[in-house]
Write a protein that binds this DNA or RNA. Structure first.
Lengths: 252, 252
DNA sequence: GCAGAAGTGGAATGCCGATCTCCACTTCTG
DNA sequence: CAGAAGTGGAGATCGGCATTCCACTTCTGC
């Protein structure tokens, strides 16, 4: 039993993501409430787009408020991110569960993989939270514990139907999703949907055997696109210092 | 036009990777020479292991010299990295070329993909230089321009032999290698060779059709391993501040 | 319509980690 | 053995970011 309905959207209802308050209610002032919503809204935009390395100043600017205001509502960055992604993680878990309802076992699995990849590739913040769990260990751990059996069932059912190779494991799914997410990020600037090509490839790999191959939904990267993807990628902690200050001691 | 023969190995011959000297020679003092070699050696170790975000202090410590000494030999970090990875990039290019010599076209392609993935998954610095090109644009660009046709030939030959699906493009190969490299990094602490499992999967995907499936060489990640991989991953700029200094006079 | 509570902006603070410089000292070489 | 070459490593400098603080503004209840 969860203590809160997981249906509520983070944007509208999350109140600091703690839920261990002695005080039941304390209606915010009208303007404050409006600002709180703006902040969540802005955080959604910024974290989704640029990931968790975006600063709270960025969020504040996007929201049109000062940083102080952000801190008045959320104890720290982690709390904000946590509140924000709660909903999305729940959606993911729900997807895995629902997919079991599909008539065709293969469709259930493949469809889930596609939808999940779709979410992940759109949402850099979600990707980071799920893949690297920098914040919200509890929430993510909980989500995973619900996800695991759901995905497991999905895989096993498809295997039992002879639609998926028997040597595939349940944990392969998140790893494959990780690969797709990484690819999406890599190609984001040139081809935001390149991951679909590789999902199709992977799905072909999951079949126990096949005659012919699935048509790939997206063309390969051109050589130039590949070059741009490489260059434009802001990932990795290894960036050359923007501009080197010349020797400072020289003149005084 | 490069002003130096790209064949020279970085460790033994690179001298600062500049090449714009008026002086043709200036033999280093014996101890200096020894140190220079130690530095390259240490850099190889450190950058390979921890990637380019390792600091020059790390390199210096590993080499058993002071940072100043490093700076005396290499103008800056980029120059050191550049000198260091030159050789490895060349090896990669050579591999692609050699693979064309294989009798079986499929073996040529598959073997190249495996060897390349092997190099990439072992060497975080190489991965970063190739995938994200933070330094050494010129060198990497040059390497790519030689790699492209070699890989293209490899793919086309295998396709002509009916061993690879015809909708595969040459640029798919580096992208797939990227995916494998990312996976290797992800699972590094728990299972350094997990990428082999996914390479096998991908290779199955590349066939135009198949009866049965290749046995996967490495078992799937256990649930615990997956959890550890997620948690232990130092990637991504979004780390929570190690310890928060409490507010002075704060309660709790 | 007003007092004071609640809320606000954003400059300022503090922290951290990284690169690169500087120079008193050590080691080599002729 | 003198002086040139080389060395170490402390610390100057930079930049970026989370978080705090407080003078000021806005709302709300009466």
């Amino acid at each position: 039993m969860s203590m809160e309905d997981p249906q509520v959207t983070a944007i509208e209802e999350a109140d600091g993501a703690d839920g261990a308050e002695g005080e039941p209610e304390r209606p915010l002032r009208k303007d404050a409430e409006r600002n709180r919503r703006r902040i969540l809204q802005a955080a959604a935009e910024v974290f989704t787009e640029r990931g968790l390395e975006a600063t709270l100043d960025d969020v504040a600017r996007e929201a049109g408020v000062g940083v102080g205001t952000v801190y008045r509502r959320f104890p720290d960055k982690a709390a904000l991110a946590d509140a924000l992604f709660e909903e999305r993680i729940d959606i993911l878990v729900e997807l895995a569960t629902e997919a079991y309802g599909a008539d065709d076992p293969w469709q259930g699995l493949a469809g889930f993989m596609e939808t999940a990849a779709e979410m992940l590739s759109t949402d850099k913040g979600l990707r980071q939270i799920l893949m690297f769990a920098p914040y919200g260990h509890k929430r993510v751990g909980y989500a995973r514990s619900r996800m695991r059996p759901a995905v497991g069932r999905l895989v096993e059912r498809a295997q039992a139907a002879g639609q998926v190779r028997p040597d595939l494991g349940a944990t392969d799914i998140p790893v494959l999703e990780f690969m797709l997410g990484a690819t999406a990020e890599y190609a984001r600037e040139v081809r935001p949907d390149l991951w679909r090509r590789y999902l199709a490839l992977i799905l072909d790999a999951l079949r126990p055997s096949r005659t012919g191959f699935t048509e790939l939904p997206v063309p390969e990267l051109s050589v130039d696109e590949l070059a741009v993807a490489m260059r434009s990628n802001p990932l990795s902690g290894a960036r050359p210092p923007s501009i080197k200050p010349a020797a400072p001691g020289g003149i005084e």
